[in-house]
Computed example of a mutant assay.
Amino acid sequence: MRGRAPRIPSCGTRRAQLCTCWGAAAAWNSGPCPAATTPRNLNIDITGAGLPFLHRFVELALAFHHAVRDEHQDLAAGIGRLRALTASGDFAYFVDIAHFMAGLSLPGPSAIRWTETEEGVRSAWRGKVQARQEHLHTGA
């Protein structure tokens, strides 16, 4: 395809990428969110873009954020929303990951079959939260 300009993603695709990036940045920061990237605004943008499947990614990012900040009530509420958003079975493992990040036991047996041991997956996700907590506490 010599001589052709590269394909530019549609506005909807760019908007979806922006929403995903905002959610990831908010999670990684684990500090106060700038007004433009609050979860409420992200969810409005996701709905406006017609991409409802992205709501579960925002909730998972928030679970990380709340786990890092030890915000247990917000985390429990987020896990409930995440459970509702994954009730169809798509991305149901996000609920397990949210529990793992917070160091919480699963409420019952999980239907998820991991490619590694569940304990290994749990340890990896909890380790990410602990590393971020350490980074925030030491400023390193």
Score class of each variant (00 low, 15 high):
R2W: 15
R2P: 15
G3I: 15
R4T: 15
R4G: 13
R4M: 15
R4F: 15
R4L: 15
A5F: 14
P6R: 15
P6M: 15
R7S: 09
P9C: 11
P9W: 12
P9D: 12
S10N: 04
G12R: 11
G12C: 04
T13Y: 13
T13N: 08
T13W: 08
Q17M: 15
L18F: 13
C19K: 06
T20M: 11
C21K: 06
C21S: 12
C21R: 12
A24G: 12
A25H: 07
A26W: 01
A27V: 09
G31T: 11
G31R: 11
C33F: 07
C33E: 10
C33R: 06
P34W: 08
A35N: 13
A36V: 15
A36F: 15
A36I: 12
A36Q: 14
T37Y: 04
T38K: 10
P39T: 04
P39N: 06
R40M: 11
N41I: 11
N41C: 07
L42E: 03
L42I: 11
L42H: 05
I44C: 00
I44Y: 01
I44F: 04
I44H: 03
D45I: 12
I46S: 02
G48A: 05
A49S: 09
G50W: 02
G50I: 00
G50P: 00
L51N: 00
P52W: 02
F53W: 09
F57G: 01
F57T: 02
F57K: 00
V58F: 14
V58H: 08
V58I: 14
E59C: 09
E59F: 14
L60Q: 09
A63D: 01
F64A: 04
H66Q: 02
R69M: 05
R69C: 05
R69E: 03
D70L: 08
E71M: 03
H72R: 13
L75N: 13
A76R: 13
A77M: 11
I79V: 13
G80R: 09
L82M: 01
A84M: 03
L85V: 03
A87G: 09
G89K: 08
D90V: 00
F91E: 06
F91I: 00
F91D: 04
F91C: 00
A92W: 04
F94H: 01
F94Y: 06
V95I: 07
I97W: 12
A98S: 04
H99E: 03
H99F: 07
H99D: 05
F100E: 03
M101H: 07
S105I: 02
P107K: 14
P107F: 14
G108K: 08
G108P: 02
G108E: 04
P109K: 08
S110P: 01
A111Y: 03
I112K: 08
I112L: 03
I112N: 10
R113K: 10
W114A: 02
T115P: 03
T117H: 12
T117D: 12
E119G: 00
G120L: 07
G120Q: 10
G120E: 07
R122E: 03
S123A: 07
A124H: 02
A124T: 01
W125C: 12
R126S: 04
G127R: 07
K128M: 08
K128L: 13
K128W: 13
V129K: 07
Q130M: 15
A131R: 13
A131C: 06
R132Y: 01
E134N: 14
H135M: 12
H135R: 05
L136N: 02
G139K: 02
